[in-house]
């Protein structure tokens, strides 16, 4: 029957459309389904593994754990980290490599976590900060070791 098929197709089409409208209508009258988070007022607590930027851990005596071995610099795929080292003379007269400055280019970093995986002494870690925008690109080049900090006792 041509006419029956025609009417049936119209009916099926209209019901499929109405089903869709019922769904959007449901969401319209149920504002509690809204998933928007109002960002500056509501700040999500980020998980501890979140990779925001690389930071160097310092303890309360302003001591870090970086021995200046440059493993992170070698592991970095895009030259984000530059470790400047110096040679200290130990009491028994030997030369020992030590950290001078730890330069970190946040603008180059892809947050791949390879430097942290490579670090043998857990000197660096990822911080959970994410609001990195600045007006001057130079501000993104950071020195991670705090001024006057020295190597923690017992870290080789």
């Amino acid at each position: 029957m041509f006419l029956a098929d025609y009417i049936k197709s119209v009916y099926n089409g209209v019901t499929s459309l109405l089903k869709g409208m019922r769904m959007t209508g449901y969401y319209f009258v149920h504002p509690k389904e809204i998933i928007t988070q109002q960002y500056p007022e509501v700040k999500q607590v980020l998980p501890e593994r979140f990779r925001g930027e690389v930071v160097m851990t310092h303890n309360e005596n302003n001591e870090h754990r970086c021995t200046g071995c440059t493993a992170c610099e070698l592991a970095c795929p895009n030259a984000t980290i530059k470790v400047v080292t110096r040679f200290d003379i130990t009491p028994d007269g030997k030369k020992k490599k030590a950290l001078e400055t730890f330069v970190y280019h946040l603008e180059l970093c892809t947050l791949c976590n390879l430097c942290i995986a490579a670090c043998p002494t857990d000197a660096i870690r990822m911080a959970q900060t994410f609001e990195h925008s600045v007006y001057d690109r130079k501000l993104l080049t950071k020195r991670l070791d705090k001024p006057g900090s020295k190597l923690m006792e017992g870290v080789e």
Binding site: L46, P47, R49, F50, R51, T110, L111, C112, N113, L114, A117, M126
Partner: peptide, 24 residues
């Protein structure tokens, strides 16, 4: 993904020999 791998889109979680960190 963010919780276990650290990032949301470009995770870099797979490393030769396994994965970078254990599951959260």
């Amino acid at each position: 993904m963010e919780e276990t791998c650290g990032t949301r889109l470009t995770m870099n979680y797979m490393v030769p020999g396994g994965v970078m960190a254990d599951l959260h």
